Simulated scan of single mutants.
Amino acid sequence: MAAAQDSSEFCKAFPMNGGDGPNSYANNSAIQGKYVDFAKQLTVKEIAEKLDIEIFRSSNTFRMADLGCSVGPNTFSVVETILEAVQLKYQSTMMNSEFPEFQVFFNDHTANDFNMLFKALPRNRRYYAAGVPGSFHGRIFPNASIHFFHSSFTVHWLSRVPKDVADRNSPAWNKGRIEYSNSTNEVVRAYKAQHAEDMECFLNARALEMVCGGLMVLIIPGRPNGTRHLASATFQLLEACLMEMVRKGVIPEERVDSFNVPVYFTSAQELEAVVEQNGCFSIERMEHLPHMNVDDSVLTNFASHLRAVLEGLIKQHFGEEILDELFDLYSKKFEQQRFMIESGRTIQFFVALKRKEN
């Protein structure tokens, strides 16, 4: 296996909104939280059936990491579920031994609001907590030091916009679009290649950092096998809002031409292929999570949910002064086209991987 690539020089940071204000991720991540809840039963089942507790018996310390943790509260809920499941597994197989100590690493980009994360840490937690800044597309932990990795709604983010997509002289120049699904084949291929490269870096890094026999659980937005790349209604509506602001003279057209959202929605076949090519993990489980019926309260505030995720990216490219107008416009258009948004959502994969023996 090739050494993991150090991605610190080329990875772009797109952190979720920090703080605890009305547009913060802490107050606008209920949708992600519902899918995390859907995945809990599967996570517990994988730990019960697949986790080999001999891997941490010698040190009597169980170390897990949540990659792309943001600021909470979803990450804390996940950690509690995992540690409770490990305790149950340990209790069922090591009746006469003391429970291991738990160490939890919360990872995200250096620009993440770690102060907010630390303030929100549960007071009655049963683990030692540490923040680990850095991109998960490269190495962030020592060799063979982590027993369990978790990551939800993160690995669909690319390390950067594909270079050709932002090159005016390239056939993949994505003029007039902010993502790839409704664009040319050249643009789609550029996004697909960037995703494959990023996933290889991600898996290489985790393979070095994880002990043999360790588990990794991922929740990944994607698309069904055999389908065309999803035309994201969410991004289409955002694109329409930006172009309306161009027509009003608020934003120069060339600024929209050079703006692209660095996300890619993979298929199960593509995921299987990249895991097989990497060769360090076995796929223990891969399935769709149930489709969520989003209640009216979430949909009413959908513009705030989107702003919590994309504000940093948009502010970085267009400046802060357009944010309120853009998301006010988005909120109005969303109310007019709510059915299109609801029907155009991605599916969510639950993926459990086990580190093979060397």
Rank of each mutant, 00 (worst) to 15 (best):
D52E: 09
D167R: 01
G214D: 01
F259V: 09
L42W: 15
G176L: 08
L208G: 03
S92G: 10
Y90R: 04
K119Y: 15
M95Q: 14
A111D: 14
S7G: 09
R189M: 12
N74V: 02
Q87F: 15
T110P: 09
F106L: 08
L326A: 00
P142D: 11
V275P: 10
F265C: 06
T93A: 05
G68H: 06
Q32V: 06
Q316P: 08
E335M: 12
E311F: 05
F334V: 04
N124G: 06
L83P: 04
E321P: 05
E287V: 10
H109I: 15
R355W: 07
L329W: 10
Y127G: 03
I341Q: 08
K50V: 12
E101K: 12
M199C: 06
R255T: 11
N293R: 15
D164V: 08
R228P: 10
Q348S: 08
F148Q: 00
R247N: 13
H150T: 10
N185S: 13
K175D: 10
I220M: 07
I178D: 02
N174I: 01
G226C: 07
T300N: 11
D324A: 12
Y264I: 03
L88I: 15
L289C: 09
A193C: 14
V44R: 12
P100E: 06
S77N: 15
N17P: 00
F102P: 00
E321A: 14
F202M: 08
E84L: 12
V294A: 15
T93F: 09
P100H: 09
H137T: 12
R189E: 13
G19N: 10
S97D: 14
Y128C: 14
D198C: 10
V275Q: 05
T227Q: 12
V309L: 03
Q269V: 13
L289I: 02
Q103Y: 05
M340F: 12
E320H: 10
G33H: 02
M1L: 15
H317Q: 05
G33W: 12
T93C: 11
V275S: 07
S159P: 02
V86M: 03
V36C: 09
I314W: 11
L218E: 01
E321N: 14
H109P: 09
F106C: 04
V36R: 07
S29E: 06
F114L: 03
R125W: 02
V246N: 04
I347E: 03
V263P: 04
Q277W: 10
K356A: 03
N17I: 11
G222S: 05
V250I: 14
N204V: 05
E244A: 06
L310M: 09
R355P: 00
G344N: 02
R123Q: 14
L203D: 00
V298D: 11
F99L: 15
Y128T: 12
E357Q: 13
T110K: 07
V155C: 03
P100R: 13
P133W: 04
